[in-house]
Design a protein around this nucleic acid. Sequence first.
RNA 1: GGGGUGGUAGCUCAAUUGGUUAGAGUUCCGGCUUGUCACGCCGGUGGUUGCGGGUUCGAGUCCCGUCCGCCUCGCCA
Length: 618
Amino acid sequence: MPPGLCRAKLSLTLHPEPPTMLKRTHTCGQPRLADAGKTIALNGWVNTYRDQGRGLLFVDIRDRDGLCQVVFNLEHASPELVQQAKALRREDVIGVRGILRLRSGEPNHKLATGEVELAAEELEIFNKAENPPILPDDHDAEKIGEETRLKYRYIDLRRPRMQHILRTRSKVTKLARDYFAANGFAEVETPLLIKSTPEGARDFIVPARLHQGMWYALPQSPQLFKQILMVAGFDRYIQICKCLRDEDPRADRQAEFSQIDLEMSFVEREDVMTMMGGFAHAVWHDILGYDIGRIEQMTWQEAMDRFGIDRPDLRNPLEIREITDIVAGSEFQVFQQAVEKTRAGRSGCVKAIRVPGGAEKLTRKMTDGYSEFVKQFKTGGVAVAKFTAAGFDTGVAKHLEPFKDALVARLALQPGDSVLIVADHWDTATKALGELRLKVGRDLGLVNESEWRFLWVIDFPMFDWDEDGQRWVAMHHPFTSPNPDQFHLLESEPGKCLSAGYDLVVNGSEIAGGSIRIHRMDVQEKVFKLIGLTKEDADAKFGFLLSALRHGAPPHGGIAFGLDRLLMHLVGTDNIRDVIAFPKTQSGGDLMIDAPGPIDEQQILDCGMKVTLLEKKS
RNA sequence: GGGGUGGUAGCUCAAUUGGUUAGAGUUCCGGCUUGUCACGCCGGUGGUUGCGGGUUCGAGUCCCGUCCGCCUCGCCA
């Protein structure tokens, strides 16, 4: 090792040769009272300057590590130095050397370095900065428009908050590599230029110059390659990789995102869940000092029935109950019509949420708002009633009164409660109430924000019936295996067949998902057939996988942890762009580099193409 | 593709029913200031009101189109 460099520990004393620049001896957050009296040097950016007039000037110098006050004082430094320092402005990049000393004035308890200051004797200005469009202060940043922050990302990222987030991200990826390496996983890279697949999200595509008229696709995940690595005998694989899906972004979703991707051989569902649960434990322990305890499990059906969503937020105490059977005989048209509906083989239903104390807590304005709110999920509205000692009151009370005893028993109603009811197709009502449950929980402050509630959701259906395409579609992906006891349903009742998939949910957010895969070619072919993939299509698209399955595929399964979402939880943000160094906007643009952009005509010709834009239909 | 919301000084925002020269804080520039720390005080610079068109005696404000940011439905195996 060259002197000054460490194999595994941070070192800042890099002096293999006599320095030609004013090089730091400490980072800006390091100096402490114990260092007082030493001559030290700092490198960094001018965070603020405070000119006190005549010969006294304070400069706060900032680097990745923190802030330190530098004082330029005529009594201790030359007039030339003080003059030079007076010209310093925000975000200039400098080096300063001098004696670290106890502050003459009051200590600043807001700074880790607040008891000391650097009495400057030498100053080197590495680079003057233009007047910055934004300042890298956390207290300003929350107010600054994101558009400006993204355009000047190199300034935004200087903020302590952003430095903290990206360093936390780095800690998590290091932790992942350490944890999985210790458990026998090998990191293997898989290709970025692959072939477009028919299932799943829209692919990003790349023209193939050497095969004119042909296209690569960028991977939505390394799914097939990691399965092939199992066939290839790697047994335990991990990769921290980029995945790309050409779909519209959201607050918690980017077209380009990262996942901690792994796959294991000779395992069953519980083995993968245990391995990944251990990683979640390690992350929450090491990053937040929190013990997540034993992770609960819940079937998909129970999650949908009780919470109306496949990733329930267990911090929210409200639950959904089906009351279709109770009100089936109702003359209330809304209930009647719902019960008569059918879609995807399911009858319509009537479902309710009991809101404890809702009679007082839910105002008319709020419940009116809830009816508006659920319309975005394509249902008509919310039926509301209060429950008192005398029975149902207001709203749809008269339609509920005939079924009072049964409803009280089913919903465990107490006087003073309210009931919120949605009647519609099963999927519509479930979705609407699932979302409404979350909204009411937030509105009434029922969610303890400081809590972490982890949950494995298991026993997903293998297939969803696609009404438009009139066919089965894989709920997870078409390489997911049925549960071992479900194989017989694959042919007889595919709609009832449960898969060996599993999702890890924390506080209502899916942070990891995976499954045991199909390792037998005959089963894989059966699934392809069920989702309407002809043998020819399957061979053309996935022939290599079918071939691999014929040549000795071990039982295997895996999971992928969404790195971006994981970070969102760890640092407490609801904006995925905050945890990505260079994120894209909702229209897929990068405001800093101004992408996407045009390319030279020659580049297009090289691919044997010409571009004709279709007119927008109006 | 649909719905919502926003775009005014470098930054964050204001501007009454369509009515004078579009204001404020902050940044920046100049001056003052020897213990500040989001320093303070005084003064000053700074505007194609996203862009294009229209209505009007008169448009930041109303209308049409368009671009961009954010939230959301669809979509995201």
